[in-house]
């Protein structure tokens, strides 16, 4: 009866208990946010213990939900503590600023992300774009990127309806969904990068 699943579940649940106990004792608001990011890991691990393809299809939404809520809450924290006007130092490391690495690595990551497409590609491409943005100064095409993300979202919804109501055109659905989600996730996460400093 004590198969691999139950052993893993027991240990992961114990680590969730430890995380929740720390959350119980913590008073500082930012520490609380860090610990909540910690307790997300046991929940993802419980999904991963499922071990089928379905597990993977459940992990991806779980990951995106986690980072989305974290994004909203961190901005609420900054607003609530009145820290919006505070300047934030960028990256001042000579190796990163002067060398070619900040150009090559983002180029590789963005290219690879476009090849991957879907959620994974969106996250990888956004990581590359953020690294480029913070090592080379900020962008100012805020509205444009936001609009691209909105159009991509509409493309994804259209592909969903293609899958549901015209399943014989599944090929168009796959292509639309892959490109739509790629652009959407990448654009949203890149905007996080341009939100680094303060509003204009």
């Amino acid at each position: 009866m004590w198969n691999e699943y139950s052993v893993g579940l027991a240990l992961v649940m114990i680590s969730a208990v430890i995380g929740f106990l720390a959350l119980l004792r913590e008073q500082d608001d930012l520490h609380r946010l860090l610990i909540i990011d910690l307790v997300e890991i046991p929940s993802l691990a419980i999904i991963a213990l499922l071990g089928t393809d379905l597990a993977e299809a459940l992990i991806l939404p779980g990951l995106v939900v986690g980072i989305a809520e974290l994004l909203a809450l961190s901005q609420i924290y900054v607003t609530k503590e009145g820290l919006r006007k505070r300047p934030v130092r960028g990256l001042h490391i000579e190796v990163v600023e002067r060398a070619h690495a900040p150009v090559i690595i983002p180029a590789l990551l963005v290219g690879y992300g476009i090849v991957l497409s879907g959620f994974t590609g969106g996250a990888v491409a956004a990581l590359g774009a953020i690294f480029f943005v913070i090592s080379r100064g900020s962008t100012d095409s805020y509205e444009l990127v936001e609009m691209a993300s909105g159009i991509a979202w509409a493309a994804w919804i259209a592909s969903f309806f293609v899958f549901m109501f015209f399943p014989q055109y599944w090929y168009a659905g796959v292509m639309g969904a892959a490109v739509g989600i790629l652009v959407k996730v990448a654009a949203k996460m890149t905007l996080v990068g341009s939100m680094w400093g303060e509003a204009e």
Partner: peptide
């Protein structure tokens, strides 16, 4: 903010429960 923290930590039992149902 406090409510957001509760909502975010509530995703842990929600998703964990759904995954254990599937398993």
């Amino acid at each position: 903010y406090q409510y957001g923290l509760v909502a975010m930590s509530a995703t842990v039992p929600l998703f964990a429960g759904a995954a254990i149902v599937a398993a």
